[in-house]
């Protein structure tokens, strides 16, 4: 399982969304790296990719709302990171469709997404939790 308890921020809505993102990325990797014909994997991968395009935007929006609610000083910089990732996902999706579902593109996407997500949740997002705890507004008893 990709998710680790140490990634929890202590904000139930955000933690639930993070867990869902990790679950989807794991499923994406398992499908894309499984043995078998690429064409047979494409429908499931496309489904996950479509889900990610919507869910990532929703999650980032909710997380940014939470940051604003606690007056997180790194809000603008964090929002820029989110925007960069959304643009990347949209750009790769377009390239993937234009290439008629090229496997190499999706393998590259999976590798970057995996490392990006782990670092973002384990490092960038933890700074939000640290700030919330410091200010006494952390949730879930943290």
């Amino acid at each position: 399982m990709l998710w680790k308890d140490k990634y929890e921020l202590g904000v139930s809505q955000i933690d639930a969304q993070h867990k869902e993102l990790f679950r989807r990325v794991e499923s994406f990797m398992q499908t894309s790296r499984s043995a078998g014909n690429w064409e047979e994997k494409v429908p499931k991968l496309n489904e996950t990719l479509e889900f990610m395009k919507t869910y990532v935007v929703e999650h980032f929006r909710d997380e940014e709302e939470y940051q604003k609610s606690i007056c997180y000083p790194g809000y603008e910089a964090h929002k820029q990171i989110h925007t960069g990732m959304v643009n990347y996902v949209l750009e790769v999706s377009k390239q993937y469709e234009d290439s008629n579902f090229n496997e190499q593109l999706m393998q590259q996407f999976g590798g970057k997404l995996l490392a990006w997500l782990i670092n973002h949740v384990a490092a960038e997002d933890q700074r939000i939790a640290d700030y919330a705890i410091k200010k006494g507004v952390g949730g879930n008893g943290r």
Binding site: L2, Q107, F109, G110, G111, K112, L114, A115, W116, I118
Partner: peptide, 19 residues
């Protein structure tokens, strides 16, 4: 990172370590 056994350097591995 992936929790999966990875046995060769391919586009997935190169992309992950590049990141």
């Amino acid at each position: 990172m992936s929790g999966m056994q990875v046995e060769e350097v391919d586009a997935f591995v190169t992309s992950a370590i590049s990141e």
